[in-house]
Structure formats: C-alpha cells, structure tokens
C-alpha cells in the first residue's frame, strides 16, 4: 500500500523509526492496563513452585546416585590396590624363606645348596614353614588367584619374565643377614642382577631337585613353566618331565606352549 502522499510516507517512516512523538504520546495516554495483585501473586507463586519442585528432584537424584557412586569408587579403589599390591603380596611369601637359610650355616658344597637357591630365586620359592600371618594367608589366596588367572584373566597379573627380571628382595631378608658368607653375598648380588641370576648354575641345580618341582605348584603357571624350561636348559630333563607332569595334572586345561607341548 502506497498512498502516494509524501507527507504520509514521511510520517509513516518516522513512525517506524520511533520518531513519531505525537502518536507515541497519544498511545502512552491510553490506560496503562496492568495485571492486578491477585494475578501477580498467582504468577509469582507459580514461579516459586516450579523452582521448589526442581530442587528436591535434583537432590533426590543425587541421593539416589550417591550409594551407587560410592560403591563404584570403593570397587575401583580395591581393584587399583589389588593390581598395585598384588605382585608384592604374591612375592612376599616366596621371598621370606631366605631369612632362615641365610641365618643357618650353608650345607656342604657337594650336595644341593638350598640356601643360595632360596635367596637366588625369591619369586619361585614356596612359602616358608612358619611365615608371618599375612604370609600364611598368601599361598591360599595365591592359589585361588593363580587358578583364576590361568582360566580367565592371565593379563591381569605380571608376566613371568617381568617377575623374574624384577625380584624385590624383602628388606627383612637383607637386614637379617649376619656378616654374610660368600654364597649369601653372591645371592644378594644375584637378587640385584636378575639376568645373571637366571644364568647362574647353582640355582638351576637346586631346581632340579625332585622336591623343587612340587614347590612349583604354588607358582603362577607361567613361572612354573619357566622353571621347567630352566631345568631343560640345564639338562635336567627327568626333573623337567616330572615337573611338567605335575603341571599337567594341576592345569589339565592349560594350553602348553609349543616348546613344552610335545615333551614326554
């Protein structure tokens, strides 16, 4: 719609731009209707109710989730501790035995030398006859974990090679040593140099003893198999086969590695 009236067009443009003061003044003179107090109260009450209804819902949600979150946090913490402390607990019973052999005189060099062996192979040894209470409980737990590990979660535990390469001699064992004789000193050095330990002849000879194979029962399957390999490497075939038979009895479902599968 264009009136063709220049004055009208100018006034209309002024109206659009907010410059029509006369129209604006007149409009403002119209009764400035407003909601009454009752309506104001109703709306404000509505706003308050809405906020009040929201807050308890949020709080209730938080309360509902709190136990779940707490439980999850506890589980996560426990799993974290288990992963972190598991290897240490695992090795503790095995590393305790060195205390006694070191304190006792070493047997003659002609026979098997249990004391150096025990010190040299802390991670492979069985628990001592009367370890500390924690150490007593450990083998039982160890067995459970071992079985579970071999069945379902092998990767949840440290790999055998790593365990062998990172022996952690217990401080007690080191501190308990009296003026160490030569074999004990050598053992301590081996403990600090695990690679050398694996190639040491004396410990291997000890592992070759018939009783040692039985002690492997309490080890990780991987550790046990590592010991069997060591026996083979040291030409202790008979002992290795005995140990492997024991292994098969204990872990009938375990898939043996290629190098041990056909060993009879």
């Amino acid at each position: 719609m264009n009136t063709g009236n220049p004055k009208f067009e100018r006034d209309f443009e002024a109206f659009l731009d907010g410059g029509d003061t006369r129209m604006d003044e007149l409009y403002r003179k119209l009764p400035q209707a407003e909601p009454d107090a009752r309506l104001d109260s109703a709306v404000q009450a509505m706003a308050r109710r809405a906020v009040a209804a929201t807050i308890p819902i949020s709080a209730a949600r938080q309360r509902r989730w709190l136990p779940v979150l707490s439980a999850a946090a506890v589980v996560a913490l426990a799993v974290g501790f288990a992963f972190r402390l598991g290897p240490q607990l695992w090795q503790r019973p095995a590393s305790v035995p060195p205390i006694e052999p070191v304190a006792t005189p070493a047997p003659p060099a002609t026979g098997p030398t249990p004391a150096p062996t025990a010190l040299a192979k802390p991670a492979m040894e069985t628990p001592p006859p009367s370890p500390a209470p924690a150490a007593k409980a450990a083998p039982h737990d160890l067995q459970k974990v071992e079985n579970a590990a071999s069945r379902s979660a092998p990767r949840a535990f440290p790999a055998p090679a790593r365990t062998l390469r990172e022996p952690t001699p217990p401080p007690a064992a080191v501190e308990a040593k009296p003026a160490p004789p030569a074999p004990a000193a050598a053992t301590a050095m081996r403990a600090q140099q695990p690679v050398e330990m694996e190639s040491a002849a004396a410990p291997m000879q000890t592992l070759a003893a018939p009783a040692t194979a039985d002690r492997n029962v309490s080890l990780y399957p991987e550790h046990w198999l590592a010991n069997i390999r060591l026996l083979l490497r040291d030409n202790q075939r008979a002992a290795a086969l005995r140990s492997l038979d024991e292994f098969r009895k204990k872990y009938p479902d375990y898939v043996l590695p290629d190098d041990l599968r056909d060993l009879h």
């Binding site: 400035q32 209707a33 407003e34 104001d40 709306v43 404000q44 706003a47």
Partner: peptide, 25 residues
C-alpha cells in the same frame, strides 16, 4: 531464573508484566 534464582524472576516479571498484559488485553 532457569538456574533457580527467584529474585531474577521477580525483576524480570516486574519489567515485563505491564507490557505483556497490555499486549494481550
């Protein structure tokens, strides 16, 4: 107000109530 501040709503309401009401009326 969406975060729960009722004073904000009161201010907003006071500013807008007349204009809105007249528009509707």
């Amino acid at each position: 107000y969406a975060r729960g501040d009722l004073r904000a709503f009161d201010t907003l309401y006071a500013r807008s109530r007349g204009m809105l009401y007249r528009y509707i009326l």
